[in-house]
């Protein structure tokens, strides 16, 4: 276990360096920089611009800047955002919480709905429920999340049941502790639903095909032949085995969730990592972009690692040596 962890963590270092360098390269390829807009402003003197250029290191060659950024990263310093004028790390930390809550909620929602439905549908294969729900799953998989977000916002506008976008209400500050939590949850329902629908549909289909495959396997027949009650066969034998790929998916699905969350955040105006990054990209706030990309990468790699560890714990047929073989 320790060896496996060490190897995987060491493996991450070249990955992170490669990805951050690529992002750095891309951002410096962009025409102009954060200061180009300020230069057009006659109220800002050229001296101030030059001073800022030196402060943010924009006057140095690319490799030097990257090396400095990397060196600062080793000291856990992600630099200063040019537009917000605060520490990138604290800015990201404040936003990442919202994104993580959104992603986690939508994931729990998707799983809680998809797994029981997938199970029922597979056990009653070819029934009318199976057909209708499998068809609906295609709908869910195909509806673009930004489009669904617009539809839900329209629904919220028309019905008034839910707040239209935003992370919390304008009167948030005046609420008491419980009121704040309730307000946040109220704002979370629609985005979590929007983000969860696609995952829900594909999980349902996967669950269905898993159970169908296992339902006909020999150990299930043995269990039935032993005279075990149907309930035990389904829950202990079929379901237990069908859940294995889901453990892996939980970690790998994180990447999709992060990307999807970014888009939903932008459309529904939620204060999360995605919206932060979008603003940073638009204003070429390079250190903020780098910080967000780094954050996204680390979350993704950790998700994959956790998924592998969880798989070993759940499935006795998989051990760490077989995982690190590739």
């Amino acid at each position: 276990m320790a060896r496996f962890l060490l190897k995987r963590l060491l493996n991450m270092i070249p990955l992170i360096i490669g990805i951050t360098f690529l992002s750095f390269l891309v951002m410096s390829l962009a025409p102009g920089n954060f200061l180009s807009n300020l230069k057009l402003n006659p109220a800002i003197s050229p001296q101030v611009i030059r001073q800022m250029e030196a402060q943010f290191g924009l006057d140095q060659p690319l490799l030097v800047r990257y090396a400095k950024w990397l060196w600062q990263l080793l000291h856990l310093n992600l630099g200063i955002s040019m537009s917000y004028r605060v520490n990138v790390a604290s800015l990201i930390a404040s936003r990442a919480f919202n994104t993580m809550v959104l992603a986690a909620t939508s994931m729990v929602f998707a799983w809680a709905v998809a797994i029981p439905i997938g199970m029922v549908v597979a056990i009653r294969q070819n029934s009318i429920w199976d057909r209708v729900l499998s068809f609906l799953a295609f709908f869910g998989m195909s509806v673009p999340n930004f489009f669904l977000a617009f539809l839900m916002m329209y629904l919220a506008l028309r019905s008034g049941w839910f707040p239209v976008g935003g992370t919390f209400s304008v009167y948030y500050q005046s609420l008491d502790e419980w009121g704040r939590i309730a307000d946040r949850i109220n704002h979370l329902i629609l985005p979590a639903f929007v983000l969860g629908v696609a995952g829900m549909a594909s999980l349902m289909r996967l669950m269905r095909s898993q159970i169908l495959e296992i339902k006909n396997s020999e150990f299930v027949r043995t269990a039935r032949a032993k005279g075990l009650p149907e309930r035990v066969v389904i829950y202990k034998h079929v379901l237990r085995n069908a859940l294995n790929p889901f453990v892996t998916l939980a970690g790998y699905g994180l990447a999709d969730l992060l990307g999807g969350a970014a888009l939903v955040e932008a459309v529904m105006n939620l204060q999360g990592l995605g919206l932060l990054l979008l603003d940073a990209v638009r204003s070429l706030d390079i250190y903020l972009v780098m910080g967000s990309v780094l954050m996204g990468t680390v979350l993704l790699l950790l998700g994959n690692l956790l998924a592998d560890i969880a798989l070993v714990m759940v499935d006795p047929r998989v051990d760490f040596s077989s995982l690190s073989a590739d």
Binding site: L258, A262, L263, G274, V281, V293, G296, T297
Partner: peptide, 11 residues
């Protein structure tokens, strides 16, 4: 391992 949508935005 790229967070693809983030990277897409940056690009």
């Amino acid at each position: 391992s790229l967070p693809s949508f983030y990277f897409l935005l940056a690009l």
